[in-house]
Amino acid sequence: MKYCMQCGSEYQDGVKECADCPGNALVDAETMRQHHVALTREQDTQKFVRAATAEDPLTADDFVALLEKERIPVFSRPRRTGTVDVLTTGALEPWWVIMVPEEFQERAIQLLSREKSTLDATSDEAALAAEEEELETEASASPPGAL
Rank of each mutant, 00 (worst) to 15 (best):
H35N: 12
C18V: 13
R71Y: 07
R41K: 14
H35Y: 13
L112C: 09
T81S: 03
L26G: 07
M5W: 04
P57W: 02
Q34E: 15
L147Q: 04
A25G: 14
R107I: 02
D20R: 13
P78C: 00
E106Q: 15
E131P: 00
I109L: 05
I72D: 01
Q43L: 00
C21F: 09
D13G: 09
M32D: 07
S9F: 08
E102C: 04
E42D: 15
E115G: 00
E132M: 09
Y11I: 14
A129T: 10
M5E: 11
M32H: 05
V100G: 00
V27S: 09
L128E: 15
R41A: 08
E131I: 11
K47F: 04
E134C: 08
S117E: 15
I72E: 01
G82Y: 04
H36T: 09
V27W: 07
F75I: 06
R114N: 10
P57T: 03
K47C: 05
T40N: 12
R80F: 14
C21G: 06
L112A: 03
V64G: 01
A126H: 01
L39R: 03
E102Q: 12
K47M: 06
D13L: 15
T81F: 01
A52W: 10
G8T: 06
R77L: 08
G8Y: 06
V97Q: 08
V49Q: 01
T31P: 00
L119K: 11
D124T: 14
E132S: 02
L135G: 04
V74I: 06
T40R: 10
V97C: 05
T83A: 10
A51Q: 03
T118Q: 11
D56W: 02
